[in-house]
Amino acid sequence: MSEHYRHDRERGEVEKREQAQQRTADADTTRQQSGEMLPFAGDSGPEQPVTPKAGGDRNKNGSSYKRFGAFSIAAFFIVMIVYMFSSQSVDTSDAAVKALADRTSTSLLAGAVLLKEDKNIGKQDYTITHKSLNADTKIWVWDYAAEDGDYVQVLVNGAPVGDAFMIKHKPRVLTVPAVGEVQIKGVKDGGGGITYAIRYEVNGTNYFNTAPQGEFNTYTLQKE
């Protein structure tokens, strides 16, 4: 007994067909006994002239093809839509060009993407003087170039604040002391240098920087 036959049998289709064939055979026997002629040879046997599109067609008019085709195209559109909504376009405004030249900006928002591909613009340390009376402040860290799998770690006064993480276009928010030394350690370069931007809440400034793998950028926060 073949696999196909066994499968059909489970679905009860073969039984139905056998019952129908039995009924036809019974009718033929009655006809023969009464001397009637069969309509044509082979009518009563299992070898009926069944066309491929007739008996038990599970792919009528290519419906299986169409269903799976629609599923495949839907998969394509879902990926494209998710990609379109998750990807961020490169900011080419004058403010963005100026920010790239100055490596700092107060006009751009956290999460601004300035480059399509990573470009090493050199590492730089900064001293940030502010008037904030708060003990803590927020920082935003993100990749301002290609999301290519760069990893950084934030350290405050030499101690890590959480685990190393992958920088993406979407900024990661961390809380650090308003006075002290904040360091960004380059953990892994996904290619083209570890390009990241950091925004400090205390002075509302974005810093666009590069952290070589295994090295630090230091931001010294001090009150006026």
Partner: peptide, 26 residues
Amino acid sequence: GFAVPNTGVFLTALFGLFIGLSLMIP
């Protein structure tokens, strides 16, 4: 211990498009 770029998703989308077209066009 680091994530890698997942090109498989985009390839899958591309496969979906081409397979879909091959099945939808009689």
